[in-house]
């Protein structure tokens, strides 16, 4: 009763001053200002990410002529297709092998660079970043020439040291390896630069403490460096996994999915099915296959990163 009475009296008495004040207060709230400032970015993300993603989902549920809704029909057909199962396998093999190699090579290079005095480090850092900054379509053309069956410079070197020629792009396994080589060549500098930054952020005193605790160089790396870099390693690997899974240009330029569709990855196969073969809904379904796989990986990686940041930072 008392509560009712208070509400009843307070309401009408305050009413005339309220609307202007409330609106002003709402506009001044930090969360409102933050939202307004983020709005341009939200609009860009909504327009360039959310809408195409939603549209792709919608497309994947249509028939080839995009005239009727067929639900998960496209996905069922894809999972029955031997070629597509091969694409899933090849995509996973390509992405995982390439990312592991990039991570290992990137770490090794970063470790080497870290031990070069700062003065000499700059030139090496610049040189080693080159593969990453050259547009991949162009650099892949260079590689294509090096792999070319008639003019392969790599084969020329192999022959010069007495080894036989390698059918770089003509034989399925060599073609897969070639695609991975080019991806690793182009992507390693990204890992290197991220790991170099991470290495620089590990305080020297931790290494000194480890050295006094009795750690050898290898033990210092295993028990201090790597655990301290885990978050950077996780995020770099996740980011690279996403980009490598979605890689299109290297496969397109180097093998165009061949020989016999054996080097296709999700993106190149989606392009082939959707654009070249004219079945846009099925092409959309192919590209959507990556999403659940990556979402699961991203969830666990980011959860780990979050947990470690809370414990360590």
């Amino acid at each position: 009763m008392a509560l009712d009475a208070t509400t009843a009296t307070a309401g009408p008495a305050m009413a005339p001053a309220r609307p202007g004040l409330t609106l002003q207060r709402f506009a001044r709230r930090r969360s409102t200002i933050a939202f307004l400032m983020a709005l341009p970015l939200i609009t860009v993300i909504a327009g360039l990410v959310a809408w195409p993603a939603g549209y792709a989902i919608y497309l994947s549920t249509l028939n080839r002529r995009m005239t009727s809704f067929i639900g998960l029909g496209n996905f069922e057909i894809l999972l029955d297709s031997e070629t597509f199962l091969m694409v899933i396998w090849q995509s996973c093999f390509f992405a995982i092998t390439a990312v592991v190699l990039k991570a290992l090579l990137g770490f090794w290079l970063a470790h080497q660079l870290h031990h070069i005095p700062t003065k000499g480090q700059r030139i090496w850092r610049g040189l080693l970043l080159l593969p990453w900054v050259v547009p991949p379509a162009l650099s892949t053309l260079g590689w294509w020439w090096m792999f070319d069956p008639s003019y392969s410079s790599l084969n020329w070197i192999l022959n010069a040291i007495g080894a036989p020629s390698v059918p770089w792009l003509g034989e399925p396994w060599w073609a897969r390896i070639s695609v991975i080589i080019v991806n690793v060549w182009a992507g390693t500098p990204f890992f290197m630069i991220m790991y170099l930054a991470a290495l620089k952020s590990v305080p020297d005193q931790l290494y000194e403490a480890a050295a006094i605790d009795g750690a050898t160089g290898w033990q210092g790396l295993r028990y201090v460096t790597l655990p301290m870099m885990r978050n950077i390693i996780s995020i770099t690997v996740l980011f690279s996994l996403i980009v490598t899974f979605a890689n299109y240009d290297i496969v397109r330029v180097l093998t165009n999915g061949g020989p016999r569709d054996l080097t296709h990855v999700f993106a190149s196969y989606a392009f082939q099915v959707g654009v070249l073969a004219g079945n846009i809904p099925r092409g959309a379904a192919v590209s959507l296959f990556m999403f659940p796989l990556l979402a699961i990986v991203a969830f666990f990686v980011l959860r780990g990163v979050n947990q470690r940041s809370k414990e360590m930072a």
């Binding site: 305080p203 000194e208 050295a211 006094i212 201090v224 655990p227 470690r308």
Partner: peptide
Amino acid sequence: IPPRDRDIAMVFQNYALYPHM
């Protein structure tokens, strides 16, 4: 002789504790 074989222990100014342990 490297630090690990000197049989010494050191306490640092900023503690130098391993944050992940």
